[in-house]
Design a protein around this nucleic acid. Structure first.
Lengths: 222, 222
DNA sequence: CTGGATCCCTCACGATACTG
DNA sequence: CAGTATCGTGAGGGATCCAG
């Protein structure tokens, strides 16, 4: 326990000692939306070795970010959930995710997309000022990944899974990133067939105003 | 370059690929306030091996967070500075630092405190709503570390070094953390001799209102 | 089948020494 | 001052194995 510290009396250094190890923040990310079992976590993070996942959960539990809970019968299952302290990381994760999304290129063939990360991406890129006077329900489908967003009174509710009666279903693929970043217009995306719509097509224009990855800042040389 | 990725199409995963390696965010932290030379960075982060510092700087430069700049003569020096993209991390660092500060215990004997981290701690814990109607200049001394804070019109300006004509000089030690967290009252701190004041003592009460580490959330069991 | 623990290999990190 | 070179250690990666 004496190793692995930064030797600085600093809140940031402390934070990095708590969640700075590899995979730690992604585990927290997958617990933001709901408690999960070990196997569910592993399904959402297939590239993490089970021993590392095990170690991270123990460490996160020890420092009060995650709580291990054994469900009462009949489902004799173990779930991991965030503590109140862990939940405070959500806003930071969203900000960091929005920052990182600016330099996100096209998805590689190995890259996976999960319901959790897509849902958090909706929350991270939501712009309340664009949601005034709007009440709408979107269902977003990317391959087999289905999430939804409901906007009402300037508030976003985003979650996993389909929606009862969506005003618009957006069925798309990798082009979603370019659309999100404003690199392609909704019209062009639909026309190319990269996006299929079910419902009110006009709501797609609202969608790209509601959810937006900021443009990547470019530095002038010198 | 193919290794070290998370295999997820996710802004957060991307962010962690950019700044998730050990020491990376602390290097960014030390560049937030001002560009620095290699040796200055190493002075602020004495525990980082020079080869690792070298590697981090190269990586951060390659991904567009840091720029390496050779100063023109006469000072044939090399400085590292943040790009616009790197500067966008400041708000995130402050939030993360404030989060981590909640679980910061007493400083260990090995822990060091730097001007940079103390200045950023001021920025991170500043509460504008407590600064209304106030115009004041503080000088904060912790050992040989001296920083300052100027408050005017609800705005904070915090930086390294002393102040021309401070309204209050706060000369203190490790007790500062407890004061910051509200675990000890200003009066008790002064009375115990752990804090020495020069200037208007009433401004110390304002200080603890202006800068505050939020209380650590405690989870109810079950 | 869930919920991990164990083993082995590799590579990043840490410490130290050294150079333009 | 601004790094590079070398080398040992331990954490991470991948596969397999085990208990309830």
């Amino acid at each position: 326990m004496t190793g692995r510290t930064y030797g600085q009396f600093c809140g940031l250094a402390r934070a990095l000692e708590l969640v700075g190890e590899r995979w730690a923040l992604l585990v927290v990310r997958d617990l933001v939306l709901a408690p999960k079992r070990f196997t569910d976590l592993h399904r959402g993070l297939p590239r993490i070795p089970t021993n590392v996942l095990s170690a991270r959960l123990k460490e996160l539990e020890q420092v009060g970010i995650v709580r291990r809970r054994v469900l009462p019968r009949p489902a004799a299952a173990v779930v991991y959930e965030l503590t109140a302290y862990g939940r405070e990381l959500e806003a930071i994760l969203l900000q960091l995710g929005r920052w990182g999304a600016q330099s996100l290129g096209e998805p590689g063939p190995e890259d996976i997309l999960t319901e959790d990360s897509l849902t958090l991406a909706l929350r991270a890129t939501f712009r309340p000022e664009a949601a005034r006077q709007l009440r709408a329900g979107y269902e977003l489908r990317v391959g087999t990944v289905v999430v939804h967003a409901r906007i009402a009174d300037g508030i976003l509710e985003a979650g996993i899974g389909p929606l009862e009666a969506p005003d618009l279903i957006i069925d798309t693929g990798p082009v979603l990133r370019a659309l999100w970043a404003g690199e392609i217009s909704p019209g062009a995306a639909v026309e190319s067939g990269a996006i299929r719509l079910t419902g009110d097509p006009a709501l797609l224009d609202r969608f790209v105003e509601l959810f937006r990855i900021p443009a990547t800042p470019v530095d002038a040389p010198a």
